[in-house]
C-alpha cells in the first residue's frame, strides 16, 4: 500500500497559513477579553480555543489526512470528557 494518506506531504503554505490563523485567533481572544460581553466572554473564548484546537489537530497533527481509526481515537477522548462534564454538572446545576 503505497501513498498512504498519512504519508501525505503537506505543502509549506498550509503550515504557514495555519500558523498565521492561530496567531490571529490568539490576538482575537485577548482582544475580546477586553470588551465586556457579559456571559458571552467565556463562550467566545472557548469557541476560539476550540477553533485553535481544530487547526492544530487537523493540520499540524495530520488528522485531516489520517485513517478513520485516528479520527475515532481523537474524538473518543473528547467525547468521554464531555460525558464527565455533562453528568457531573447534571448534579451541580440541579442542586
Amino acid at each position: 500500500m503505497q501513498g498512504l494518506p498519512s504519508e501525505h506531504i503537506v505543502p509549506l503554505k498550509v503550515y504557514f497559513t495555519v500558523a498565521s490563523a492561530l496567531f490571529v485567533l490568539l490576538a482575537l481572544t485577548v482582544g475580546v477579553s477586553l470588551i465586556d460581553l457579559g456571559p458571552f466572554n467565556i463562550v467566545v473564548a472557548l469557541v476560539i480555543a476550540v477553533a485553535k484546537m481544530l487547526l492544530v489537530v487537523l493540520f499540524f497533527m495530520h488528522v485531516r489526512w489520517s485513517s478513520r481509526l485516528v479520527w475515532l481515537f481523537a474524538s473518543g477522548g473528547i467525547l468521554w470528557l464531555a460525558i464527565l462534564f455533562a453528568l457531573t454538572m447534571s448534579d451541580f446545576l440541579t442542586r
Partner: peptide, 22 residues
C-alpha cells in the same frame, strides 16, 4: 458503565434530578 456512576451517590446530597437520571 460510564453513564451510571451517580447511583453510588444517592444519599450523598447529590441533586435528586441527577439521581433520577443516574
Amino acid at each position: 458503565g460510564f453513564l451510571v456512576w451517580g447511583h453510588h451517590m444517592f444519599v450523598s446530597g447529590q441533586s435528586v434530578y441527577a439521581g433520577l437520571v443516574f
